[in-house]
Design a protein around this nucleic acid. Sequence first.
DNA 1: ACCCAGGCATTGG
DNA 2: CCAATGCATGGG
Length: 270
Amino acid sequence: MAHLSFPAPYDFELSTGRYRAFGPDLANLWHDGGLHRVVDGREVRLTAAPGGVDADPLEPGAEPVLRRLLGAPFDLAAFAAFAADADETLREIAVRFRGYRPPLGPEPFETLVTSITAQQVSLYAAFAIRNRLIERLGVRAEQAYAFPTRERLAAAAPEELVAVGFSRRKAEYAVGLARSELDLDALADLLDDEVRGHLVALPGIGEWTVDWFLARHLARPTAWPAGDLALRKALAAFYPELTDARAAGERFHPFQNLTAHYLLLAYIAG
DNA sequence: ACCCAGGCATTGG
DNA sequence: CCAATGCATGGG
């Protein structure tokens, strides 16, 4: 057992709600009050603890990916200060949901495949399809599964993905991504627009998917998924005067990413 | 049965 | 540049 510390305030349950809201997530499994995640083949159980999160067991080398999973790169204190000085709407949302630290997709390939499953369909459908993919091509540890590796998907026939509910097109996108030459880890060293250029060149990866990759894998502060349907609905609900979602992002510079997450959370929470 | 849901590529103007 | 269309599943 080891401890991962986070600056207060940090609300573990609120922050991990995404992994329960649309049904179970076999790769980020909420089980018996804790979040289970497989790192390097070993299942880790994460639970709330004073001052942060307990991780059991914590292998050397697993800490960076776990901290990333828990959204460690976000500067919540700076966002809180920004929101406190912003409009009344954002100010109230930031206070109501203080301690919310959006989880990140710890692995680039997994993040992209997850987004492909979520294109167009409801998140309930996306989670169901994703879970069947994980069961079929992933590897189970104890309760949770390791998400299917890029190598496993590169070796898969698209028909295997169709069999778990992918459309024919999406099956080809996911397998094509796995088989592409692109070094996904190297994207972390590039500027936002450079990342965008590399990714949108791949079939099935458009602006929306890149925006969420920048936001939820690379934790880029100014990522702003202006085309996202849920974010548009949240904007319409909280800022009816901001009819241009893309332009609206400028208002929240340089905290577009955290603002988007807080608006989505507030919108879903009702 | 029908419609919509945290898109994207393709086709045709 | 923009409009129309098909896609697969789950929930209402």
